Simulated scan of single mutants.
Amino acid sequence: MTIQLPDASGVLRGYVPRSQAVALTTDLPLRSRVVYSAAHVVADALRTAADEPAAVDWDATLAFRRHLWAHGLGVAEAMDTAQRGMGLDWPVAAELIRRSSAEARSVGGRIACGVGTDQLTGAAATLAEVTAAYEEQLAVVEAAGSQAVLMASRALAAVAKGPEDYLEVYGHLLRQSSDRVILHWLGPMFDPALAGYWGSDDLDAATETFLDVIAAHPDKVDGVKISLLDARREVDLRRRLPDGVRCYTGDDFNYPELIAGDTEGFSHALLGIFDPLAPLAAAAVSTLDTGDTGGFRRLLDPTVELSRHLFCAPTRFYKTGVVLLAWLAGHQRHFTMVGGLQSARSLPHLARAYELADRVGLFPDPGLAEARMRGLLTLHGVDA
């Protein structure tokens, strides 16, 4: 049966959804790559409001993490995909870290949790206050028994006067961390407040500072997550990492080629797009485990168009598409987000996300996805 979807100009056109789910085969555990999905949170639709602290549906949120673990993926918790700094405040993020870490232990799932400075919400902070905020969050993650991801900090970007301030703050945190951490470089396309991170708008200069931080503490750095949407820059950087330090791609535009790698190495993954792609991503990496790079690319390459659509400018609103797909796939009962972020993308954008996801066989129940998409269209006044 045809569904009428609005295109970018608002013109309706017919699309015939698939009628059968795609069968995927995965041999667990995944072996050739370490794969994390940054995970979204499910809002409590009966309590959430755009101008109030985040209200989270804990049962649905943790159930989604069990879904990721069941497919062999690790969970990257309380990252920007979980709307850190865009609806999810630090007190709720801390509770999310505690609950998800306990859940990970109960099922034997891999987890790493975001450490930032988003409790600093007032006037511009000092360097000491930024460091103290990082320390507070690092203590919460370590007490929960999880690995830390040192996230890029808006407060540090605002107060740092140059590369030496980044070297000082990160050096202090790495010296006191009890375990190896993941360093996170999030580009300004994901958060404009992070422009000039590592002390320079020149990415070459910023890269040198980033590598200096790692070189000074290679025993404390498990890996680096690079989210600059620049495949060549990521490859160049990963070739310069010290032995034993992983590169986790955060490039939601070029992930198949970066994970597949080349004769000189490859990237592991810590990706927001693997939130909706979990079953397909797991099947692809499982295929790569057998040495079948071509099969891996045949599974994952067709998903890039969807990912580039979800992460199109303004990229920071990609979370809206991620949550839409979770709802359409049946992982939650509603399409409501903390902070009211479900309104951040247009109806044509959401319709295109549905179509592209359906084309690659992302929905375990295509009929449910179609019915829910029709309901969303009807709500917006479209006779689908």
Rank of each mutant, 00 (worst) to 15 (best):
D236W: 12
L237W: 03
R238S: 06
R239V: 05
R239E: 14
R240M: 11
L241Q: 08
P242K: 12
D243K: 09
D243F: 02
D243W: 02
G244R: 07
V245A: 11
C247L: 13
C247P: 00
C247A: 15
C247Q: 11
Y248K: 02
D251N: 14
D252K: 14
D252M: 13
F253A: 09
F253C: 05
N254L: 01
N254M: 01
Y255T: 13
P256G: 03
P256Y: 04
P256I: 06
E257F: 05
E257G: 12
E257M: 11
L258H: 12
L258Y: 12
I259R: 09
I259P: 00
A260I: 01
A260H: 04
A260K: 07
A260G: 01
G261D: 09
G261L: 09
D262I: 05
T263I: 04
T263D: 15
T263P: 00
T263V: 13
T263R: 13
E264T: 14
E264F: 12
E264I: 05
G265I: 07
G265V: 05
G265S: 04
F266P: 00
S267G: 02
S267Q: 08
S267F: 02
S267M: 05
S267K: 06
H268M: 02
H268W: 01
A269C: 00
A269M: 00
L270E: 13
G272Y: 06
G272F: 06
G272W: 09
I273W: 05
I273L: 14
F274P: 00
P276D: 14
P276Q: 13
A278L: 12
P279T: 14
P279N: 13
L280N: 04
A281R: 02
A281G: 00
A282C: 05
A282I: 10
A283S: 12
A284S: 10
A284L: 08
V285M: 03
S286Q: 08
L288A: 09
D289F: 06
D289N: 09
D289H: 08
T290F: 01
T290E: 07
T290G: 01
T290S: 13
D292H: 05
T293F: 04
T293Y: 06
G294I: 08
F296Y: 12
F296R: 01
R297G: 06
R297H: 14
R298T: 10
R298D: 15
L299K: 11
L299N: 11
L300M: 14
D301N: 03
D301C: 00
T303V: 10
L306C: 03
L306Y: 03
S307W: 03
R308E: 02
H309P: 01
H309Y: 07
L310K: 11
L310N: 05
L310P: 00
C312H: 10
C312W: 03
A313K: 12
A313G: 07
A313D: 13
P314Q: 14
